[in-house]
Design a protein around this nucleic acid. Structure first.
Lengths: 210, 210, 210, 210
DNA sequence: AATGAATGAGAGTTCATTCAT
DNA sequence: GATGAATGAACTCTCATTCAT
């Protein structure tokens, strides 16, 4: 099966460029990452990049599109099928956050790209923003579902709450993963379980929380 | 005293360039803002910019440094001098947030610069990050003070809570001020009082909140 | 004889590439035509081109060389074997032009390549120019022959007249075949017979003019 | 008047770049002429070009636009105000052609750019083509005027004749100015007076021929 | 004969910065 | 203080050509 091997090589190279690009974009930002950096790290010629991708913008958009899909999967798993107790709910919330934080830590470059709304190309800024909006809407659906199941009071505004929840999560992921490695850094060495639990608790009970 | 008049004009010009720069940096990002854009909007020649500022980076750093100082003032006003009831505390919290959101809305370009951690120059990214860290520490001091005054349980971790609080606030400001003007946009038309109140409430009682 | 069948296919492919190349060169110019355009239209891979042709330049030269030969045939048919009346002469001239215009219209891409002396490669410019010079010399021989046969006054300068004649013909072909399709376009919808007759008439009186 | 001297220098530089560009475009073609060639010959840095001109295309279009205007002036001087004898007409025609050929020889690079319809950028090809069309229409107006004044038979088709005339002139200019310097070159060493007279004669009898 | 991936030398353009006036 | 012209390094993208399979 030489055919497959051949085509496999090409796919491999593409994947390699893709993954190098995510890393460099995250580390140095979109603008400061040069195509020459990417190809140099891959050990190929500059032209090779343009065999596999249409442009610098195109590869960034592809990266984000990929990430968008994967994240959607993670979040929508939090959608409740049936009612439950308060304890159930806290636990479910914690599980969802844990999955999300785990995904983030396993894809930190991607997350940096998505959350650092940085001064990229307009199209890329847009794509990243769209992804975050999609995440927020997934959370909103989860909240609305919980209201339907009467696990949350009918008085709250789901849109607003989703915004707050998403703000919280975005900020915590950012601090946990790429927060300043300063001595006083609050979150660098916290565990996955802990950050999930704490965030879930805050989510429910707020600063005053029991 | 023509000298002073002259120098007054110079200061004026400097200020003008500074304010145009904030606006453009915020609107289009640091990288996409060209010196030529700034001077063009100010109606002066390219060289004039370099009489007033050392470099593009320098003007950005100056903008951020200015903002840092002003924000510090706002937040440290929330520092409690004496104990009080729970109601006091919620109210104080709401007042602080209200001042903060007001400041943000009156300085939206500055906030965009600070919160959009974007792919700027390393030095600028750093300066913005430092400012956010300083904000977070101010909140942390407030929290610790409240613990000292036994208005908050001794069990909580102030660093973690400050991180959560700051995440929440950052996210809400960003959504409120420069969130997508999409139809479904959650926060574009909410009032200052409302967003402050809601955020303060979440801060205390979380999603489950009364 | 699989070999021959094979080779037949190969010849076919070669011809196909050749004809696509003429078309694209004429339509878009030599420089703007990419090898990738040619192979794409032929439905073959990039490498295939280089099995059949040494280079981009080589295929263009081959196209022009082919055309040169065919045109020569057409023009040299106008060579007079014996004297005749003035009417004979006009008619002969008209016939020659008719053949030439017909050939041009049947090979418009080729003509575009030859007449659009465009900013091609030096070698190609040269080859096209050589072809036009050869045409002009063929006309000059015809004129000289007509002088020998005393059908044209001895006072004229054949070189100069050939240049004029060739200018006239080149220009008319260009206008007729690829002139602007503008509303006021003078020649787009004129018939073969008409353009030949009119040009012959202009040629005749012009040439005859003492 | 330092101001003027200053601005004068800038205008001077612009003109210099413009004239170098015409020369190189004509000599080597638009595509093969690099910005680096132009600035190198002018002894300035690459960026300087872009201070004075928006792009490579822009400078070419400016060159052509300039030429278009100048040529128009020359041709429209041939417009007849009143009737005259046949001798008048031949003479007037000869004068016009002489002016045109003189202009061409004094602006040979420009003419090469206009007549070599070469494979430039589409916009440039268009601009050159437009200019030639404008020339042709100016000639057509001259012919129509001569018909009005009954100096030419009413039976001829002015559009067609203008096309023939323009073909003739284009071809003769091209051969005269940048025709092959081959030994047999027909026109390299002919004088301005001679080529004008001969072409006028051919034109006259050609046009007159019923 | 054919494939398609890889190559690499440029090309045009941008833009922060400098500098003579 | 101000001008505007000049600088030049850097960057993205193109495309003819090559080559292992």
């Amino acid at each position: 099966m030489p055919e497959e091997a051949y085509s496999g090589k090409s796919v491999e190279r593409r994947r390699e460029l893709l993954s190098i690009a995510v890393e460099l974009f995250a580390k140095n930002g979109y603008h400061k990452t040069k195509i020459s950096d990417i190809v140099h790290q891959a050990g190929v010629a500059q032209g090779t990049f343009y065999w596999h991708f249409k442009s610098k913008e195109a590869i960034a958009l592809e990266i984000i599109a990929n990430g968008r899909e994967e994240i959607s999967k993670v979040i929508s798993q939090g959608y409740r099928s049936h009612s439950g107790t308060v304890v159930d709910m806290v636990q479910a919330s914690e599980t969802l956050l844990k999955n999300l934080f785990r995904f983030a830590s396993e894809n930190r470059y991607l997350m940096e790209l998505l959350l650092g709304s940085g001064a990229s190309d307009e199209a890329i800024r847009q794509a990243a923003s769209d992804t975050r909006i999609e995440m927020e809407q997934a959370f909103r659906r989860n909240i609305e579902r919980a209201m339907e199941l009467e696990m949350l009071p009918q008085t709250i505004d789901p849109k607003l709450r989703a915004a707050m929840l998403m703000s919280l999560i975005e900020g915590m992921i950012a601090r946990w993963l790429f927060g300043p490695q300063a001595p006083e850094s609050p979150l660098s060495d916290i565990t996955l379980d802990e950050i999930s639990a704490q965030t879930a608790r805050f989510e429910f009970f707020g600063l005053l929380g029991i």
